[in-house]
């Protein structure tokens, strides 16, 4: 079948899609966006997290056909050209990336959290990221990264003219 959808703002078409394929497979193998990761393919690890119409979902649990005419946002769409999103920059700066396999999913999930909560408490951060497994870091530097990103975004908001969100 053919699936037509929008990825990171770009209209996209995937041909010869087998009905059993997941959104994750289509992204990784058919449209050249392997940034979303395939750590468990059973909805347990969160490494494949993408936005679907603005909500974070495990793309391994979304059938390809379900995204027809919908909007998908992946880790590849977070940066503006060479300018990293504050969440991405904070993960690099805080040492929250080791092997990096969990990172794309965590970035999308954190990006969503900080859009909803500008000053999340530690307990809120842990709750929001509890569906994303990381095996390398013990999560301490991930906590640091989320706090850092939240603080930098707050600074950017303070610096921005009234009415604009940073």
């Amino acid at each position: 079948m053919k699936v037509t959808f929008t990825v990171n703002g770009r209209p996209t078409e995937a041909d010869d899609v087998w009905e059993g394929e997941s959104l994750l497979y289509v992204l990784r193998e058919r449209v050249g966006l392997p940034g979303s990761k395939n750590a468990c393919e059973q909805g347990e690890c969160g490494s494949c997290t993408v936005y679907l119409d603005g909500d974070p979902v495990c793309s391994c649990l979304v059938a390809a056909g379900q995204v027809q005419d919908r909007e998908v946002g992946t880790v590849e769409g977070l940066a503006q050209g060479d300018t990293l999103d504050p969440v991405q920059q904070a993960f690099v700066d805080a040492g929250a990336v080791q092997c990096g396999f969990c990172t794309p999913g965590l970035l999308v999930q954190t990006h969503d959290l900080l859009n909803r909560a500008h000053h999340p408490s530690d307990a809120e951060i842990r709750e929001a990221l509890s569906g994303n497994l990381c095996r390398c870091t013990g999560y301490e530097k991930i906590m640091d990264a989320v706090r850092l990103a939240a603080a930098r975004k707050a600074d950017a908001r303070d610096a921005a003219p009234t009415g604009l969100e940073g």
């Binding site: 392997p34 880790v75 991405q88 993960f91 690099v92 990336v97």
Partner: peptide, 23 residues
């Protein structure tokens, strides 16, 4: 010192090529 990892930017952009990403 603690310089940042040289592969960090690629990894946060989703551009780092893991073995399962090869084509």
């Amino acid at each position: 010192a603690s310089p940042l990892r040289p592969d960090g930017i690629l990894k946060v952009k989703g551009d780092f090529a893991y073995s399962s990403d090869l084509w």
